[in-house]
Amino acid sequence: MSALTRPSSSAAHPSLWFGAAMTAIVVLIALVSLVWTPQDPTAMEMTQRLQGPSALHWLGTDRFGRDVLSMAMAGAAISLQVSFVAIAFGMALGVPLGLFAAMRGGVLDEAAMRMSDLIFAFPALLTAIMLRELFGPGALNAMIAIGIFNVPVFARVTYGAALSLRTRDFVTASRLAGKSETLIALDHILPNVLPLLIVQATIQLSLGILAEAALSYMGLGVQPPAPSWGRMLNDAQTLMAVAPRLALVPGLCIVFTVLGLNLLGDGLRDKLDPRLRRRQA
């Protein structure tokens, strides 16, 4: 019985479609912002600073008279970019590490997992601070800091799931049939871990967006003049009592994006996880 080939009605997965639609909107806005925004998101006009919404500036202007809508749009591109690269980095290193540790066992298992613990023990924010002190702040540092933090996350999830799968009957059967550990890992373990990984990647992607925002908010991420939601929030902080709109816009952008990704992930999980599918049938 294969879950993937089963046709499923859209009504069964409302979160999937909501999530996909929301994510698509954000991605679309991010793509559009690369070629067009209503105004130049970096253009300042001091006489127009802190204006409310108008026909010219739909979401008003910030402290330097920049167009908030254009900044929010351009911020979408930056946020997505940083988060995707970071999570991809984390998965590319973490999944093989966890798989390897689980399949090998023994000293190598111990060493690999201790190493991942060690990396993990450096909280992302501290890593980001260290990277900034060593190489200066920037988007790349944010990606690396978030990415490093994700390596042990994926390693541990893969490891935990692979361990319990390793003793399952169908794996034992393959092993008795003479299949190599590598083949078992790729043919049996990985596909079965995949749904878990997708759910985890969803959480991590949303966390990545949140982490990027936090880093930029602390001045450790994307640097001006490139707009970023986190920095817009930092900027808005002193203006909270004057123009709460400036804190609301980037905040809601983050919430919308993260919510969309999470709904998408949830829907995907329901669709992809064979065990859950089986129960629905």
Binding site: M240, N262, L263
Partner: peptide, 21 residues
């Protein structure tokens, strides 16, 4: 689920700013 989805999506420092407000 909907509430938790929202909870996960809210940055804690932004949430903190709103709580202060």
């Amino acid at each position: 689920i909907a509430v938790t989805q929202l909870g996960v999506a809210i940055p804690n420092f932004w949430f903190a700013m709103m709580l202060v407000l």
